[in-house]
Design a protein around this nucleic acid. Sequence first.
RNA 1: GGUCCGAUAGCUCAACUGGAUAGAGCAGCUGCCUUCUAAGCAGCAGGUUCGGGGUUCGAGUCCCUGUCGGAUCACCA
Length: 595
Amino acid sequence: MNIDLTLREAIQQQLQNLFGKQAEQLQIQPTNPEFEGSHTLVCFSLTKISGKNPEDTAKLIGEALVQQNSIVAGFNVVKGFLNLILKDNAWLQVLQQLASKTHYGQLPKNGKEIMIEYSSPNTNKPLHLGHLRNNFLGWSVAEIYKANGYKVHKVQIINDRGIHICKSMAAWKLYGNGETPKTSGIKGDHLVGKYYVVFDKQHKTEMQALISKGLTEEEAQKQTPIMREAIDMLRKWEYRDPDTLQLWKTMNSWVYAGFDETYKKMGVDFDKLYYESNTFLLGKEQVITGLEKGVFFKKEDGSVWVDLTSDGLDQKVLLRSDGTSVYMTQDIGTAILRFHDFPNIEGQVYTVGNEQEYHFKVLFLILQKLGYAWAKQCYHLSYGMVDLPTGKMKSREGTVVDADDLIAEMVAEAKTQTLELGKTDELSQEEAEQLFQMIGLGALKFFLLKVDPKKRMLFDPNESIQLQGFTGPFIQYTHARIQAILRKANQLGIEINTTKIGEVTQLEPIEKTLIFVLSNFENKLAEAAKDYSPAIIANYVYEVAKTYNQFYQTISIFQETDPAKLQLRIGLSKLVAHVIKKSMHILGIQVPERM
RNA sequence: GGUCCGAUAGCUCAACUGGAUAGAGCAGCUGCCUUCUAAGCAGCAGGUUCGGGGUUCGAGUCCCUGUCGGAUCACCA
């Protein structure tokens, strides 16, 4: 029984009986806890069809529902709000129905396909805190869509080409002395990142030297020996110079090995990878075709542009005067290639920071102008920056929080606190290590995902490391607690039988609240998909855990003598554990049996 | 300067998309472990929702205006 639907139908029927007319829309909301009831009908807008004031309207509807309907037991009216009290029996039916579903929270396949892009790093430095928010978000949104019945393709575009990687290459060539991840013992992405920093330092000192010789800053910027080396490498790369290509491949492979390790630690994965080095040429072709079709235009110097002034935007360059491609060129190519590879996808979601909103607005417009109908189904999942208490993260100033370091710190903190609480007594060494990982990573992911993606957020290391309150570990703990109960039930030989639950005659208020919260799960999943927001799931699962802990604390399960009630409470616990596990999975967080 | 986003308790965030007396966590203060896990629960305290107008039965939410963050407007990615 869908309680919401049943209620709506009943109300519409009574409106018909009472006033000879149904409402276009019924506004039903959860009842404010200070009043009795669970569902509240807001009656202000119904005065139009009742011709009476809100209070009288509410009263009439309430009386009619109690008289004629099977699920409403009572009501009260406050101003224009009709608070409905449902029969215990209705709650029991809801619970029985939810408990009998084997895949509650997994909607049936809807035949739709969607592509979600996230991560998409540059290959010249390791991943940092900003990437963590990006990866967790993208991965979780993919899971949200899966739970809603979509077939999902998780992809990323790897920016493996361009001046940024040439900078690391140049620095390594000049100052690396053949150092490799093996000889140095440094993780590949960190090693390449190290030479990016070397480049920057060297470039700055060389610039000073040039400026003191009388060059302007702008001139010096482009003429330092190390910058010349990098630019030369980029040119050689474009011309397929074998040595340059070899170095490029080698250093990128170091980075990929490093990334793979980090992704694995993060619990993030992809179905397909796209490389900029493979897509930028396709983008070029598209631009040339567009030029021939008259969608774009060429300036005297040979550069190709798109004019978006009629759309309220500016002109945008698509090919430089020397014929080389820009960021936009490559993104055009990538988008088209993806729809070619996966013809059934109905849209693409780009998980990219909000500083690129303008870029994506332009990209989608260009794709539309090129005549791709699917361009309207492209969505920029734009998320806010992660700030530190010290301010903005800047890689050049060294105020970056490294992803590997942060994960290690979180796990270490989880270990310290877990050992302090003496929670590892029953666990083997290996189980304990797994638990620390689960808790540390769970705390981190939950911390980053509980905030509305669109909003800029503050990452306070002290707060993120907390394991009490509105945190991942709090929810993991609740799950472990329930598992202890289920183990005990198992020992006592109690098996859950949903028909037995139906014999219960009276429910505690907290039990009704819990059933109500649980019955909202699939609505929340739909809402989260619509808004591309794991935060909705995070807030929801917190509410579930909190409500369960209230239940747990007020009711002693195994002291119950009525076998039907015992069944109900264990069944309810089991369902809560299921919803927690599924929700947390959607957030990319594992959940322990003990902690 | 143009465009876009944001501002809610000391701090970090919510608020069912216009509903009732704006809710949580952290920090502070009180209680509760001989019972199924106290990483928990119950309670106290904490608010002019940035200021000012407007729209209506009703505004943190919508409109106008001002103030203060921020992002973006590159032949960078």
